[in-house]
Design a protein around this nucleic acid. Sequence first.
DNA 1: TATGATTATTCCATTATTTGGAACTTTATT
DNA 2: AATAAAGTTCCAAATAATGGAATAATCATA
Lengths: 283, 283
Amino acid sequence: MNSSGDSMAQADDESLLRETGASRDTSTSRDTGTLGKLVMLLDLVTHADVPLRFTDILALANQPRGTLHRQLGHLVAEGLLELDAEGRYAPGLRLLDFASRSWARNEFRLIAAPHLASLHRETGETVHLGVLRGSSIIYLDKVEGHQPVRMYSQIGNASPCYCTGVGKAALSVLSPVKLNELLSALHFNRFTPATHVKAESLLAEIGEIATAGHAFDREEHEAGICCVAAPIWSDDRSFIGGVSVTGPAYRLSMELLQEWTIPVQVTARKIMDEMRVRLGPRR
Amino acid sequence: MNSSGDSMAQADDESLLRETGASRDTSTSRDTGTLGKLVMLLDLVTHADVPLRFTDILALANQPRGTLHRQLGHLVAEGLLELDAEGRYAPGLRLLDFASRSWARNEFRLIAAPHLASLHRETGETVHLGVLRGSSIIYLDKVEGHQPVRMYSQIGNASPCYCTGVGKAALSVLSPVKLNELLSALHFNRFTPATHVKAESLLAEIGEIATAGHAFDREEHEAGICCVAAPIWSDDRSFIGGVSVTGPAYRLSMELLQEWTIPVQVTARKIMDEMRVRLGPRR
DNA sequence: TATGATTATTCCATTATTTGGAACTTTATT
DNA sequence: AATAAAGTTCCAAATAATGGAATAATCATA
């Protein structure tokens, strides 16, 4: 489960950016004036694999030189970006302070934590907790497996919804209207040979997932990595997320994944029950 | 070492905010136009202990109703804030995505990680890595217990420089001019009976720290917690941070802390040496 | 180290966005 | 049901952002 396309890590002039599916493509439509443009830049710099020079950003951001220069200057002045001695822009550490507080206080994560721990004890593999934001899954927590496996998942990372277990599980509990909206705006990106690249095939699988109550990821995002996931949602669907058990394909046979659908769904159920009690049944 | 004054966590109407020393007081002077105002709001909401309602923010932000309403609306639209069903504003999860990438790529942290691990093996206590940003220390990494890092446990939190081991160590390698600038703008906050609340006493200790090459925190930030720290800096002082070993006062006698000054300073030295090789000796 | 090429920064009249007071709507309280 | 409190919308005026072009600083190469 990787931040999206480590295979493209060697940057050439045309693809300094990682594509995270459709995480960026909504920012053009919603009108947030000056902020929208600045957040777009923030997105651009934070999603690049390496610090970007002014000209790199100029090519990517589609803004006039003067405008871009001032915008970057403001972001640097606020500590949201950092400009090194070689004139390269990197994400700023101020973002960490904001985010650490966002994470520390997140109620969903706090409620789920003990349940993730016991699911991890039961399976011995890495457990993830994620939440649907737009068309991305943001990972809120993870409990690592005992056996070290090279996996690039990172708490806080946004990953596409259409090729992750948690993502597909989340989609399966969306209302048909919302699901349709989301899918029609989705931009598919092939990460592995198994990645869904068409809405039709994805939609078909989502139907099965909705019936079964669990989703699999068979090396659809990262080669060699697969998982079982179950959705977690509030009554009014204003909140949608999921929990998963992830590991290397050579260790996780289809039979084993199938077996784990039960503990994963039980964990999801427990978290949901506790959310209803703690946050009120309505939402 | 905590996020800053957990002892004040019980919020009354007048102090929904945590004061982190002088982390917020610079935002008024630098001119970043619209962005500056929006970041101030972000700061306000992320540093509150609980989700804030519109009126709470109105009272704290000193902005007209209409203006504030649109600003918050934009922040919510961009996912930097979230507005729950009860009309309360909380930090948005989009911040996590930005920050996780900032953290994952941070070169200082990547270089330091193995050295932190061996310092932890040697001492058996919690090891912290921090960097000076403005008048705050931002914690970039920590090695705790025998488990690998949990990214946001406290990592990313900004703490005051004047009452943390890493902070005081960092101040000790600032140029006199910069130190003076920083101290004169500093707002002291008493966290424990041992906290420095005057520039004079702090300055005196910083002199001793500069000579000794290490700093102690004797329960100055959090009661019952003390540490030894050593500074880490680049040749041109464009980068300043530090490393520390932290633990409960009942376990860490002054003798033990004194003994650990050596491994802590050796660790700092190793990290600096490697930074010179990897990032160039100039800076 | 001189020269041309590339990259970064500054400037300012024009344009677009933000501002803020007030009216209005919704939600809680008595 | 009446009243108060909280939240939302509106729009002319004030302010900040824009973007093209000129200038300055760097880098690569002879």
